[in-house]
Design a protein around this nucleic acid. Sequence first.
DNA 1: CTTACTTGGCTAGCACCACTATCCGACCTG
DNA 2: CAGGTCGGATAGTGGTGCTAGCCAAGTAAG
Lengths: 214, 214
Amino acid sequence: MRLADLSERSGVSTATIKYYLREGLLPPGRQVNATTAEYDEGHLRRLRLVRALIQVGRVPVATAREVLGHVDDESLGRTIRLGAALWALPQEPEPDEEDPAVVAARREVDALLERLGWETARELAPLSPVHRSLVVAVATLIRLGYPWDAELLSPYAELMHQVAVRDLDFMETYASEEEKVETAVAAAVLFEPVLKALHRLAQEEESARRYGIV
Amino acid sequence: MRLADLSERSGVSTATIKYYLREGLLPPGRQVNATTAEYDEGHLRRLRLVRALIQVGRVPVATAREVLGHVDDESLGRTIRLGAALWALPQEPEPDEEDPAVVAARREVDALLERLGWETARELAPLSPVHRSLVVAVATLIRLGYPWDAELLSPYAELMHQVAVRDLDFMETYASEEEKVETAVAAAVLFEPVLKALHRLAQEEESARRYGIV
DNA sequence: CTTACTTGGCTAGCACCACTATCCGACCTG
DNA sequence: CAGGTCGGATAGTGGTGCTAGCCAAGTAAG
């Protein structure tokens, strides 16, 4: 498959593919001679993953490069590779620890994890970017005057845990060993819009049931 | 409260506030005289909502203006106002109906709604932007080779329905009648990052339980 | 009364980002 | 050998969310 074919089959312009090659999001093709390179199905899959990360996940190009770098790092074991890739995803700014909303949010999040008995999450709390994201999100709610505390959050957390259990079950049955890391990244990024849309659709449905359509 | 006070209390620069005023995201203050305007707590709350929409929700300014326009439209009843505001939120591009992935996704989504018995969602399907978002998200999964069908999706949908039930319960007990629309919009935008973070945290926790931290 | 400052309104510009367009010389293909 | 395509490089584009600076009118402190 040459560049033009890759472009046609993916629906991405050649100029954009060149850009991704330049940015290191897509590995170079097998150089046949000085002016021709050969791409394979792996390139096509990777290209689609890149598009998914950038267009669906709104991941900045620099972050995508970092995530994919971890995915490809064969010097790491599978679990670490996956962890590294997923940890590179969120790109929230550091929370301002002076901000009282952040302080309150951190307290509520800690209380929540204790209440749930999520020991790993508690241990990893100082390191985990996800934990930081949660604090930032809860702090925003608090700052706007919505008094979300551990008690209100915990049933949500339990529901999301059920979702996570399903995610991992799916990953185990579906992905081949080599593709697991890629699958996990794709799932993390691509499945979120599905969940979000299901959530809003469910809100519409439930709202209509309670109050009618008008 | 003058412009400078509004700026200080919200942490938003005066230049940015002027920009929001210009863009119609923030109603003008009460004009005291030719060179002074007076702002109140409502302006502060609105300003924070605007920031939440734009910074947290990544809603484009034009969309935010549209959403807030519906929130403020007192000629509409509460339910319609809320619906209009929420419907203005998603900004996905139109799906390409020629694309086989989109066709397949639409079929699966329709099957899903039938299986769940979500009658309202089925009726509103041709109109609802949320429905469209779901189709686009599922199509992306399919295009990348993840064979998500109605059967796999429906337990997720049921879990998200449970989440939606909690959302609406909260809204009913919490928000005053006048603030319900604003609350609902804030919740729709601000609660999603919380859910997302909880989801990822739950994935980390469950993954650690199954495979260990290393 | 003076001086420093604020206001809304205006215009111009900036920084970032994801591309995109164009040109180049090398080199296959018919 | 004409025409097309290649990788590589560079500069430019368009959108967006601000941001900076100016202005004339008006206000508050001393």
